[in-house]
Design a binder for these strands. Sequence first.
DNA 1: CTTCCTGCAAATCGTTTGCATCAGT
DNA 2: ACTGATGCAAACGATTTGCAGGAAG
Lengths: 143, 143
Amino acid sequence: MSETNNVEQMIKVMSRNGWRITDQRRLLAEIFAKTDGYLSPKYVYDQMTVHYPSVSFDTVYRNLRLLSEMGALEQFYFMDGGLKFRMNCSNHHHHHLICMNCEKTLTFDYCPMETTLKLPGNFKIINHRFEVYGVCEECQESS
Amino acid sequence: MSETNNVEQMIKVMSRNGWRITDQRRLLAEIFAKTDGYLSPKYVYDQMTVHYPSVSFDTVYRNLRLLSEMGALEQFYFMDGGLKFRMNCSNHHHHHLICMNCEKTLTFDYCPMETTLKLPGNFKIINHRFEVYGVCEECQESS
DNA sequence: CTTCCTGCAAATCGTTTGCATCAGT
DNA sequence: ACTGATGCAAACGATTTGCAGGAAG
């Protein structure tokens, strides 16, 4: 099944970059593999303590940062400025549709920069950000 | 001139909401009136200390927050998660083109949500965010 | 004169760092 | 055995809060 594949792929990325595969890192990979959507450091920490009560917050942070530096995770600041991480689907450009309640995240391919966009000034465009926020079907039902 | 108008308008908003007009708040209004673009709390604080060396950081924060709560300022988290404020042009929907060097900000009216946008899931759309980041003409020249 | 605003200091939150110990290779 | 990873505690930056004195209405 693909969850296991995702775990193995993340493990492989770490190995390839010369990292040691510790229990904490394997657990981290599993947590991200079984969730679609952005996770906060706190959520990841809470999940880890379930199976591994002695993990420390800084280990979570360290590994989250290292994993995003090597491209296995995507890093992202939410509308409220909070930092989140998710598995990287780096192979294609995309944007996100985010549930404001459960924070489940779906990707979609439409990109406003692909249209001929008339922008003011003579900026050299470098980057852009486009996200849609809403409430997903399940969260609408359960309210 | 319009800078003065903007100051008077912000002062009026504060008065109308039953706030006292202190020197610090007048100065705050002047700083925002003479700058287009997003300002960080630190920048605002530095500007205030120029004419008012004894202001404290928490007064700046308090007033920035109060001014955005009553709608005179717009609040915004940048790509790097940093908090910024700017005068509110609330009368029309718009998005921003932001210089990554000097952080000057231009507004533009194009909105990707106005097109017929095919999104996955059955989300109830509530909000969206679209920003373009680049380098403005002046900053391109001076590099 | 009353109430709100300010400035100080201290608290808080999220994140990072230094260091001694521990575990993967 | 060697080196990198962990956990602890402490540092850190950004923001918020409690409180006593000071200024706006």
